[in-house]
Design a protein around this nucleic acid. Sequence first.
DNA 1: CGGAATCCTGCGAGATACTG
DNA 2: CAGTATCTCGCAGGATTCCG
Lengths: 122, 122
Amino acid sequence: MDVTTKPAGADCKGVSEILSRVGDKWTIQVVVTLRAGSQRFNGIKRRVGGISQQMLTRTLKTLERDGMVERTVRHNTPPQVEYTLTPLGHSLSETARHLADWAAAHRGEIEDNRLHYDARQL
Amino acid sequence: MDVTTKPAGADCKGVSEILSRVGDKWTIQVVVTLRAGSQRFNGIKRRVGGISQQMLTRTLKTLERDGMVERTVRHNTPPQVEYTLTPLGHSLSETARHLADWAAAHRGEIEDNRLHYDARQL
DNA sequence: CGGAATCCTGCGAGATACTG
DNA sequence: CAGTATCTCGCAGGATTCCG
């Protein structure tokens, strides 16, 4: 699909899909967790904290499908499954970090604005 | 900002809230639309396209509360309400654009990965 | 240990109609 | 024109149970 015709802000549908992935509750947290290196299922679950097994499974599967993480199975006893960030996944994590930095930098300002706004509504 | 000391995923809660705002379906589109300058309610509605007035109202109100847009009322007949991006809002739009650029750049790769993945599942 | 399958719930979000 | 008020529905996301 011809991205070049895009006038600097016209989300061509596919873009907003990626955006929504970033906004989803767990994807970014999992990706960021994996920046530290390969990890196994319950390891990730422990590190992310608060995620249900169901959602971790879904998130990892989606990320794998998108080519953000690689899944490696070792048929030992007990079984081991390792998840590793691909270059694409790393790239996403970098971009997401910019956003996170922005959020961290302006969080106070935003909360302030909310307080003022709410006060005015009384 | 010293990200390196963060234990690999310590989203300070408020950050993920901002992230989810970015991922929400309309916020970014409205902000991007307003980059072109002040605009009125139905003007935004027309430009964004596909948004219901309900969602536009909600989105604008949230953005106003967060201090991203400023609302100016003119009691004419017919009434006019203008929405303008604040500096904070501009700043967000810039950051969001980086993400959108990333998304646009990797969209093809991701779709490719999905096709391969789905093919393997048969 | 690493999942899959199933059930349940709340909220995001659309459609529509009414108001000032 | 610029909203507010309802009603509704789909789906993200949680809890729980079962499987290899």
